[in-house]
Write a protein that binds this DNA or RNA. Sequence first.
DNA 1: CGCCCATTTGACAGCTTTCAAATCGCGTGG
DNA 2: CCACGCGATTTGAAAGCTGTCAAATGGGCG
Lengths: 250, 250
Amino acid sequence: MIQKLELRSSLSPEDRAALLALPHSVRRFEPGGWIVREGETSRSCQLILSGFVCRHKIVSDGGRQIVSVHTRGDLVDLEGALLSHADHSIQALGSVEAAVISHAELLSLAFSRPAVGRALWTDTLVDASIHREWVANVGRRDARSRLAHLLCEQAVLQQAAEIGTPIEFHLPLTQEQIADATGLTGVHVNRVLRSLSEEGLIERQKKSITIADWQSLASVAGFSDDYLHIQPEEAVRSRKSVQERASNAE
Amino acid sequence: MIQKLELRSSLSPEDRAALLALPHSVRRFEPGGWIVREGETSRSCQLILSGFVCRHKIVSDGGRQIVSVHTRGDLVDLEGALLSHADHSIQALGSVEAAVISHAELLSLAFSRPAVGRALWTDTLVDASIHREWVANVGRRDARSRLAHLLCEQAVLQQAAEIGTPIEFHLPLTQEQIADATGLTGVHVNRVLRSLSEEGLIERQKKSITIADWQSLASVAGFSDDYLHIQPEEAVRSRKSVQERASNAE
DNA sequence: CGCCCATTTGACAGCTTTCAAATCGCGTGG
DNA sequence: CCACGCGATTTGAAAGCTGTCAAATGGGCG
């Protein structure tokens, strides 16, 4: 499971073996459990094995901004390996299982095996790219587009991580948390989500979403998956699959 | 000048020498010149020698979002070395001089000299951290705080890059561009800037800003420089200097 | 001196927020 | 198995911050 860490780089079998051989222990977090707290210094990072986590920051008036959501296969708190203190907190959104990997071990592997270092570095660059898209999302899109964009992104990412299907996926956030991720208020998220489903773009189950009309939703969102930098073969497979299922659903 | 690239990591003299020995050519850009266009593939990255550049994305309704501003000592388009296509554009804000460095050369140096690789990797992590702060800035602060935050950030960054003093610095953006960086409109930026200067927090010259009351401005912004991850000794020097000058100015 | 772009300013509309209250969902305890 | 209780979801009404549209002013460059 560890090797799926790398959707965006190629690794030799030896590299994979070295990654798999990393000493680690599995840790479980309760819903709401803190994985990292802002300001802390840590000695290890966590590879998410199951469940969802989010990174967030608190601004001075008490408002919270979620800056990213991660799931199976994502390595969080890699920052801790090279930076002295965490600039944000990381919290479990539900029950979470994570593999704890020491920074020292990971760094030494990264520097002894170029392909591994390259893959990890690429991962941080993609993280940054996603952050940039989020800046544009909260900065320049209205509430409707913002929410549509978040849904499209989650659909593609969960598809890539092989969790759920591209048109129906688990949305582990409460409406209040969706609001914190999009820079809106819980009340408004509720209204917009309802309007999206009334228009037939999405369908809402208890804690998951079905994209009823991918084309329209992506168009409302102005969504393009370029910024996710998913490898060509993966991207093709993923996009095709999204579209096929979308058209089957019609 | 190249070695000041690393404010946040330590390098041995040999590492510095290797960086300085990188083959490069100097390229000049006109104001508004494109350094990278979204979607492009590039073979080299650019180390800014003088002037300012910004990264930005265009959303589907034509709106523009500036996602970062860079100046002397910043390496831009490092993404191009590891990712296949650019997810954003980079444009010169005024006249810019940049050293062009081939990706291949830079990567081979990064993988042969761990300290260099570490420094570059750290740089991308700091970039990501700044992006996260921007997400929080546009997502969860009102116009007043957003602008104050942008000003505080620029003051500290330009001080760290040794351009101008911490309380008076060059702001290479038009109000329209400031709006694109903060997710506001030009008209509103104008109003808020005027109100900040009427309240005595800042003073405005033609194209530069003087922070008249750092304490108050930082408090309006909810600004803390933690997320910039400036090395301890640097941070102390920088903060002290900002505060000294600020109190001298009173 | 004149043109062009950036900055200002005013009035008004509108998207989102705020504040409150009602309803729903679901795990817990009787 | 059903009642209770708390958090999440909904909904309504009203206020407010920010955007839009337009026009005037100002400043720099050819």
